[in-house]
């Protein structure tokens, strides 16, 4: 009953959000809010994607930048080779990200958490090195991209990208919410608490971790795909920037990972603060604030913002909207 009502409320909220975003692109003239808003939406989607493996299953992925960068370069390579439209670029990036997630997961998810974390850093560096040596997409120097003409009903490419990223946020949140409320979510939560006890209670831990790693990876790469068109440029050191990893991880943990709303809150809060700080002070200070907030939260508020809002917050069987 309540579960059903929650679902209706959730999808109604999603519809209102998308309609609001779409009308904003039609009404607001100035492009700047869309430039800034795109980045915040991108971080919401990344944080939610990160939390599927990092939050629900408790495997800390330092390689958000690897998946993001792979998304960027899948789009770049595809666009340069075939001029494929944006939607195809995103779908291809998701497929590559999922494959990568499967590979990494198979390699490392049998091991203790820290090894998985280190392996994800390794992955990012190795892939970045390959891209740096890949002439077709510009190597270390990067590549300029010419945006194709914008499609109706949008009058600017940035506005369209803003809408596309909003759709990706909805997809990420929808998937995270589904997982949280399904038995996959309960299995992941069980294995995060105690992997052996979960196995002995019938949870196929390796399979669930792999599924989480693949979904999380697919989403991260999909989120990265439009970034090349957003900047009209791509280069390895910014596509594989470690800041994506810290941000996704910090936003998730600061928001709280027991519920999908946590990463969303964390990303909105930190994302807007970052936009503000980067513009007004400097990008170094902005990263410093991120780091300090992360450390403060993991030490003092282990359950994140949602834990502070509801002191005994728990993931419950029925699920919340």
């Amino acid at each position: 009953m309540t579960k059903h009502r929650n679902s209706i409320a959730f999808w109604a909220g999603v519809a209102i959000f998308l309609v609001a975003v779409l009308s904003m692109t039609q009404i607001v003239r100035n492009e700047y809010p869309f430039f800034a808003g795109y980045v915040i939406l991108q971080f919401i989607a990344l944080a939610v994607a990160w939390s599927i493996l990092g939050g629900y299953a408790g495997y800390v992925n330092f390689g958000t930048n690897a998946f993001f960068g792979v998304g960027v370069y899948t789009a770049v390579a595809l666009f340069k080779a075939t001029g494929a439209p944006l939607v195809v670029q995103i779908a291809a990036a998701a497929a590559v990200g999922m494959t990568l997630g499967f590979g990494v997961g198979l390699l490392t998810l049998r091991m203790r958490g820290i090894f998985f974390s280190i392996a994800t850093i390794a992955l990012a560096i190795i892939i970045e090195t390959f891209v740096m040596n890949w002439r077709f997409v510009g190597g270390a120097a990067g590549i300029q991209l010419q945006r194709p003409p914008v499609m109706a009903p949008f009058d600017s490419y940035v506005k369209m990208l803003f809408f596309v990223q909003a759709v990706l946020v909805v997809i990420a949140v929808g998937i995270a919410r589904y997982i949280q409320n399904s038995r996959i979510g309960r299995g992941l939560q069980a294995l995060r608490d105690d992997e052996l006890a979960a196995e002995c209670t019938g949870v196929p831990t390796l399979k669930l971790k792999l599924v989480a790693c693949m979904i999380s990876g697919a989403l991260m790469s999909a989120v990265g795909a439009p970034a090349a068109m957003y900047l009209q440029y791509a280069d390895p050191s910014s596509a594989f920037n470690l800041t994506y990893s810290v941000s996704a991880l910090a936003m998730s943990l600061i928001g709280g990972t027991a519920h999908w709303i946590g990463p969303v809150l964390g990303a909105i809060l930190l994302g807007s603060t970052q936009q503000f700080l980067a513009v007004t002070i400097s990008s170094e200070i902005n990263v410093l604030v991120l780091g300090i907030m992360l450390v403060l939260f993991v030490v003092a508020a282990p359950k994140g913002i949602i834990g502070l809002l509801r002191p005994r917050y728990r993931l419950r069987a029925g699920g919340k909207p």
């Binding site: 800390v60 995060r192 991880l249």
Partner: peptide
Amino acid sequence: DAGVRGIAFFFG
């Protein structure tokens, strides 16, 4: 939950 937070702590 020391695993996740401990790693995140040193990363931070």
